[in-house]
Simulated assay, not measured.
Amino acid sequence: MNDWVKVKAINAAELIQHFELSDEAETALIPDKTPHASVEDLVDANCHYDAIKLIAHGLPKREAVWWACLVARQIQTPDTDEHNINALIAAEAWAKQPTEENRLRCRDLGEKTKYETPASWAATAASWSTGSMAPEGEPEIMPPEYLYAHAVAGGVTLAGVLHNADDPEQSLSQFIAQGVNLAQGGNGSI
Rank of each mutant, 00 (worst) to 15 (best):
V43Y: 01
K53T: 01
H57L: 04
T124S: 13
A68W: 07
A123D: 04
E111R: 09
Q170D: 13
A64K: 05
Q74Y: 01
I141T: 10
C106H: 02
A37S: 15
A122K: 04
P98K: 02
L147D: 10
W94V: 05
Y146H: 14
L182A: 06
E100M: 11
C47I: 02
W66A: 11
A9E: 10
E136R: 10
D23C: 00
V71L: 10
W94H: 03
L162H: 10
G137N: 11
E92I: 14
A126P: 11
V161C: 05
A95N: 00
Q76L: 12
E136P: 02
I16L: 09
V39K: 03
A28Y: 05
E145K: 12
N164H: 12
S173M: 05
F175G: 08
Q174G: 11
N46P: 02
R62C: 13
A28P: 10
A51N: 05
R105Q: 15
E26P: 01
G160H: 01
R105M: 13
P31C: 11
P98N: 07
I89V: 15
A68H: 07
L88D: 03
A159V: 14
A183Q: 09
E92K: 09
T130P: 00
Y115R: 11
V43S: 00
A68V: 12
D79P: 05
T117S: 15
E20D: 13
W66Y: 11
I85W: 08
G186C: 03
A56D: 05
